[in-house]
Design a protein around this nucleic acid. Structure first.
Lengths: 194, 194
DNA sequence: GTCTATATTGTGATAGAC
DNA sequence: GTCTATCACAATATAGAC
């Protein structure tokens, strides 16, 4: 299977379209024909770039995780304080949600995990691990700096924060309100603050 | 459309089967044939009880919300302390998740909201409202009793808690770990405690 | 790389016999 | 209430021409 770093412009456009569809409808809720219509080519042309739907989604999640890693680096470069970093992390989710109330790709696919090809499910698991590792690190930094209470370990706080952000998007969609992850991030961070 | 309180035993069995499928695969991930195989009758017989998939899901979510209301009453009857009630609420999610790592019906359908018939989406929104109203009430009680910090309003805390629980199930499925909402509930409640 | 055409299977849904 | 038979359509996927 091709790597997402050596991909043609058309393959990129296909992934862009498919990603939007997954964020709105889920893995079982979009078809190759939907993608084809969005990018303006015919269905079999999609198969030329990604022979099977399984391939498409696996690469898509790889790319998504990679771009998230970029965001994490970005946050580290822009903010020094652990609390600012945690707030900026929540803002990434808010930004995604504000774009037509899109879900996190892996929030959607994680929920659908039971009807996902293994290759895709593996990539989703990897996404969560990357994010939890990073959050655990920052939560630990915040605790060592005396910014966050120490009555819970950093790993538990990381899981609770990520869970709250993913869940906030689900609630926001399910209730059809404009409210998104930003408020939940604020609430969470203010409750854990020392 | 029929009400879920006046339903035949077979209709109940169909809903039971469909609910399990939704919790594992989502709305777009199960078919009338899947349900038929589970309950041991043929596909058209399902249509006899629920003419359209839209009907089935709307009734299913109504029944789910109703049963959740029962749980809330149960918790109120069993526990007097707001903190105990909040912990018991988290335990309901843990119980669901421990059964084959099933998702909350409305967590799954909320995520899939974009490809849901209106009738179903309305019921999902109603589920979240019922739960948030109740949680807001209990959070307020806890604050008034001095058990929870007052630096966030009760409504925000309710949203954060429910988001964290729904998200915990998504993470648990996506990462293929046994870990579920119980730990997240514990972490959350200990961070908001006064 | 893209297309037309097609194979194959699955899906929601209906008609009508028992 | 349940069944067989069937419809119309959509899905993933492939073959082969241009």
């Amino acid at each position: 299977m091709k790597h997402f770093l050596e991909m043609s412009p058309m393959a990129e456009r296909i992934l862009d379209a498919a990603q939007g569809l997954i964020q709105q409808q889920g893995y079982n809720g979009f078809s190759y024909d939907d993608v084809a219509k969005l990018v303006g080519i015919k269905k079999p042309s999609i198969h030329h770039h990604f022979p099977k739907k399984e391939d498409l989604v696996a690469v898509l999640v790889q790319r998504y995780t990679h771009s998230f890693r970029g965001e994490l680096l970005n946050i580290e470069g822009r903010y020094a304080s652990p609390m600012d970093r945690l707030a900026a992390y929540g803002a990434v989710f808010e930004q995604t949600f504000n774009r037509d109330r899109r879900l996190c790709v892996c929030g959607m696919l994680g929920a659908e995990s039971g009807s996902l090809p293994d290759s895709a499910a593996d990539e989703v698991a990897s996404f969560f691990k990357v994010n939890l590792d990073w959050l655990t690190q920052i939560m630990g930094d915040a605790q060592n700096a005396g910014l966050i209470k120490k009555n819970c370990d950093a790993e538990s706080l990381a899981q609770a924060y990520l869970s709250a952000l993913e869940g906030a998007m689900v609630l926001g969609r399910g209730m059809r309100t404009v409210q998104g992850p930003a408020d939940i991030a604020r609430t969470f961070l203010s409750t854990v603050s020392a």
